[in-house]
Design a protein around this nucleic acid. Structure first.
Lengths: 347, 347
DNA sequence: TGTTAGCACTCATATATAATGAGTGCTAAC
DNA sequence: GTTAGCACTCATTATATATGAGTGCTAACA
């Protein structure tokens, strides 16, 4: 059986309708609402074929049809079309990015918030990471008799604090000296090289503040080691409750529990299912490897924050989510991050 | 009509039963389950009185009785008794506190998590604040051509980062000098005094890096100014969905939306409704000033983290929550925070 | 006078039955 | 190949009836 043009038009109508109404659609509804120039009986025959082909399913005998995961797959791969963002949307995104670009934590949080607001779905944003990320600056700060703080700045201007417990910490001047020492070496070597140089097998030197120095370097390494630390921001989680498909608390709780696990969530969003740079990947329903998300779809993309650092953005909704809308917006945010960053670089 | 001992016993039985079952309780059930030595008919008469007094209500004519907010109020004020924590619970709490005591952010987060785990209710913890909180250390760190970072440490060892935008930031040595300058003054003066001294009306001096200095001081002030920055941690929010009273998504969403608003939540938890130090305050159902929480009760307390800094812990559940259990655990955590801190002080 | 057995009454919930109608599949005619 | 027509299906809704948990009241009892 061939999937001719008319069948595709009908499938498209069913999907578009279902995305809006969340109700099974019958042949008569399509005949009336969409001007396809054929009668309901003909549509019925075509729908019967579409069902046989697996693109739509019938919840029960006397009900209309609902798109299957396979149907959505066809739709997102071949049928949906995107739109440019409106001026308001672009303005909104650019302002969000520009206002927060210097502080990565806020940027992630605000971006997640902005996307949740624009799409009305749940948004997950992961912090930009890079294999090549470097430590730019380490500063040790006195805290009390048993601990000091280490502030680590990366070349992406990510700032992280760590508390280091020490039996008898160096005083402030000594801490400054150690910091300076590390920072000077950082001009020439990577943090890994520094550790090797100082604590390598060859030559175990006898530094005055060996313990402090080593722990300081370790905190720095911890900061730049990808996957060491999960930083992920969610927004609009409660939007889930707005969809009738999740009006059953048990189903909602299922999804919430997945969204609560930062590690799982990070895997889900960041897992590069063959994403090229800035391309958009869509995972539909049962394609999700997480059982709890099998009634959800995820639309995700990688954004490049810097030449060699990238993070992920994922938008999660019911399988009947508005794919074209979300893809358009995701494209918009990725593009605008680039625009803002370029503008800053160019002064 | 007098609230005699027997009436109170019956009320107590009703409340205890309802906390467990969430089902209206009838006179026969009480007669069978609780050995009060009186028949269901007598209980019926007493229950009729209790209803007239407003301590219990009937959802409909042929249903059993359910405690009213007034009933719970009597219960928590006069009837419930507490227990000591088990050794396991104490161990669990102490370990949580001890492992995180040096890093305030983690401590809050882990405390919230531990309490949610122990109680199965939603837990909210606010960061310890103090009117007398002082800036102990300020460190400026270079970021890029347009910004520097300011790391502020308070005398409670709270560490906060801020990004400062500057047209042409000083170099690293100059930043160190400015930092040292501030830190030296901090030994003698408060951050407010420093600001006054340098930027007061009397004498507008001409510092080489006036803008940087002023902005650095402002970030420090922002860090210690109570209410400037809301830091509040929640855990176990999804536990809400486990209670049959919130199995209606609309009700659940209502509560979630309140829990989402950090500002509101902070007000709810920190609002000192006549709390003395370390005493426990219970807000029942309609006593909540937030409309969205009128089906919930909040049990909250103030914990002293240091002599003059204190934060709040709140536990939120349905009005039929297990008050005595939660109060016992809250007492336990407050006590154990004190124990751990004392142990550290005493070396 | 307080307690209790007994009984009529209430009303949410459960069960059974029928009515409705949205939607289908099939057939026969165009 | 298309479509009007029709019998059939079945979730949903409406209606009626039964069930039973629980009450309030009364009258008898200790």
């Amino acid at each position: 059986m061939i999937l001719n043009d008319r069948k595709i038009k009908i499938l498209e109508a069913i999907i578009n309708d279902y995305i809006q109404t969340a109700e099974p659609i019958g042949s008569r509804t399509i005949a009336k609402k969409y001007d396809l120039g054929i009668s309901s009986a003909t549509i019925r025959n075509e729908m019967s074929d579409l069902e046989e082909l697996g693109f739509i399913v019938q919840p029960h005998t006397s009900a209309g049809r609902v798109p299957s995961d396979k149907g959505y797959r066809l739709y997102v791969d071949r049928l949906m079309h995107f739109r440019e963002l409106t001026d308001e949307e672009t303005e909104f995104l650019q302002t969000t990015i520009r206002n927060n670009i210097s502080h990565i934590d806020y940027l992630m949080q605000q971006t997640a918030k902005a996307l949740a607001l624009l799409t009305n779905y749940t948004t997950v944003v992961s912090e930009p990471k890079s294999e090549k990320i470097k430590v730019k600056h380490v500063q040790l700060i006195p805290l009390d008799e048993k601990s000091i703080a280490s502030v680590v700045v990366t070349d992406k201007n990510v700032i992280k604090n760590h508390v280091i417990a020490l039996d008898s910490p160096p005083n402030i001047n000594e801490l400054n000296n150690i910091s300076n020492f590390i920072n000077k070496m950082l001009k020439e070597y990577t943090i890994y090289e520094i550790k090797d140089k100082i604590f390598g097998d060859d030559e175990i030197q006898n530094f005055p503040y060996k313990e402090t120095l080593e722990k300081a370097i370790d905190t720095a390494i911890k900061t730049v080691k990808v996957k060491e630390d999960i930083h992920i921001y969610t927004s609009g989680v409660n939007n889930i409750l707005d969809f009738p498909e999740f009006s059953d608390v048990v189903k909602a709780k299922n999804i919430f529990s997945a969204l609560e696990e930062k590690q799982l969530l990070s895997d889900v969003i960041c897992k590069n299912d063959g994403m090229n740079d800035n391309s958009i990947k869509i995972v539909i329903g049962n394609e999700n490897y997480l059982e709890q998300l099998k009634d959800c779809s995820i639309i995700k993309t990688v954004y490049t924050f810097d030449d060699d650092s990238y993070g992920s953005i994922g938008i999660i909704g019911p399988t009947r989510m508005n794919y074209s809308q979300v893809v358009s917006i995701l494209n918009g945010i990725v593009k605008n991050i680039n625009i803002v960053i370029k503008a800053i670089k160019d002064g």
